[in-house]
Design a protein around this nucleic acid. Sequence first.
DNA 1: TTATCATATGAATAGTTAATCACATGAAAG
DNA 2: CTTTCATGTGATTAACTATTCATATGATAA
Lengths: 116, 116
Amino acid sequence: MPSQKHDHGLLVREVRHDLPSDELLCDLSDLFKIFGDTTRIKILYSLFEADLCVCAITELLGASQSAVSHQLKILKDNNLVSSRREGKQMIYSLADDHVRDIIEKGFEHLTEKEGE
Amino acid sequence: MPSQKHDHGLLVREVRHDLPSDELLCDLSDLFKIFGDTTRIKILYSLFEADLCVCAITELLGASQSAVSHQLKILKDNNLVSSRREGKQMIYSLADDHVRDIIEKGFEHLTEKEGE
DNA sequence: TTATCATATGAATAGTTAATCACATGAAAG
DNA sequence: CTTTCATGTGATTAACTATTCATATGATAA
């Protein structure tokens, strides 16, 4: 009854059964999408080292203040960073260590190519 | 001598010193970019469970065969999956377990929100 | 209150990208 | 060798996204 010619109905049903929900898989790709931008990765990596104000991040990246602010907003909206005000400055910091873990896993993948 | 008004030159220099190279950070965001697409995440997650032919993946995702092939090419070009021919079919499988680790870390981040 | 520093934000633009369509290739069955 | 199944791929298009520019907000100092 399926439209395809060769049969793999059983396998497909089994795999489908073990798959997370569509919604979760979308959330997952949305999460990785956040890390898939050079500016944001640089910001996150910088925040591994220290809490930083917008001005410092801007100087670090050599990007415009506006671009940095826009990306910080995205990171904050997705709860990857948090901010606090100190006088005139806004200090940003990593929201939690999951972020660090995820990025370090990616880093390992890039740097441990010899192991295969 | 810097152009900004308030001073954080020392901190910026320290953080910059600990930062990976621009090239590595770009590679890193490029890697995450791969995971930042629903179709590709679904393909990868499906391959966690079993090696699959293009036709099976297509049926699993409910996407077009062409779309699946395009995304498989991207995954293969980036060494995240490998393929072998079996008669008329191409069987795809995960290239290595780094992929699994990275995605599971992301999964944890999404599902372990209670822990904070 | 006015001026200045620090950051945020809306609109516009340019670049990127994923899906579709049409078709090409490649293997095997007849 | 022709047909059919299975997959790959170039071109086009529509949607998305990151930056820039201009300006707004918010805090402090004068």
